[in-house]
């Protein structure tokens, strides 16, 4: 069940991504409609984070291309926001919540410019939206996991983007944060923003998302939640590892095939 849409906000065409010449994502073809709240689901090692990192240009593509707003990434970066996995940064870094959120403004500022008063106002407002106003000057290592995630979310909001990619924003957060985050994401989606989230929990997925992408090294399904989140498709995604596919990948790593071979 792979449903393609007209005028997609995101188009992934025949995308293959490899680590160390071993493909971890095989020939992904998908389109996402504007304004959708999308969940990317799949078992561990399915390539969920890899997919959004590849879309954001953080990993080299072995084949295929990505178009956002029908354009290549570099021309429309200002309209896109990326929230890395919380664990990808050192939370002992000497900085405050406000400073982290201000980083969301750097993309608009450009080189050499210092953030203005307006930037600070936007940042403060974003901090308020995630309910962190009491922690503005808190050192980031003193935050709980949920608060760290909120700080990251506020930084994304400060980017004032139209398309958001979030890598596991619900991982390791408390129930209150999860509720706050999902209602914020719904609000943003209602306001016309497109949000693409890597998510783990099947139970909540059907309530959270209106579009679901099922992934297990290759694309299993992409479509409206009620069509994509079916028992048989879930069985296909989670049931049984794709041993053959990953063994072939392993073989490619071992033989170290030159990249330009056809």
């Amino acid at each position: 069940m792979i449903q393609q849409v007209e005028n997609p906000i995101l188009e992934v065409h025949d995308l293959t991504v490899s680590y160390d010449s071993k493909p971890v994502l095989w020939n992904v073809d998908l389109t996402i409609p504007e304004g959708a709240l999308v969940g990317i689901m799949g078992p561990n090692g399915a390539g969920k984070s890899t997919l959004i990192k590849a879309i954001m240009g953080l990993l080299p593509l072995s084949s295929g291309y990505v178009k956002l707003f029908e354009q290549p990434l570099d021309t429309i970066r200002q309209r896109i926001s990326y929230v890395p996995q919380k664990e990808s940064v050192d939370w002992d870094f000497p900085t405050t919540v406000l400073d982290v959120v201000m980083m969301g403004r750097y993309g608009k500022l450009g080189l050499f410019k210092r953030p203005s008063k307006h930037d600070k106002e936007v940042a403060l407002q974003c901090i308020e939206q995630v309910g962190m106003s009491d922690y503005i000057h808190r050192q980031i290592s003193q935050l709980s996991g949920g608060q760290q995630q909120r700080a990251f979310l506020a930084r994304a909001l400060a980017q004032e983007a139209d398309l958001y990619f979030m890598d596991e924003p619900f991982a390791g957060v408390d129930a209150a944060t999860e509720r706050a985050v999902i209602s914020l994401l719904r609000e943003m989606s209602t306001a016309g923003k497109t949000i693409i989230v890597v998510h783990h929990d099947l139970q909540s997925a059907q309530h959270y998302f209106d579009w679901v992408v099922l992934l297990n090294m290759h694309l299993v399904a992409s479509g409206p939640t009620k069509d994509a989140l079916t028992e048989s498709l879930l069985e296909k995604t989670y049931g049984g590892k794709l041993t053959l596919l990953s063994e072939i990948g392993e073989q490619m790593r071992k033989t170290n095939l030159p990249k330009d071979i056809r």
């Binding site: 953080l58 896109i80 890395p84 990808s88 870094f93 993309g107």
Partner: peptide
């Protein structure tokens, strides 16, 4: 500062 704190994010905003 951004390079030291969060290089992935830095790259995502086009640095």
């Amino acid at each position: 500062k951004l390079l030291a704190f969060d290089p992935d994010f830095a790259r995502s905003i086009g640095l």
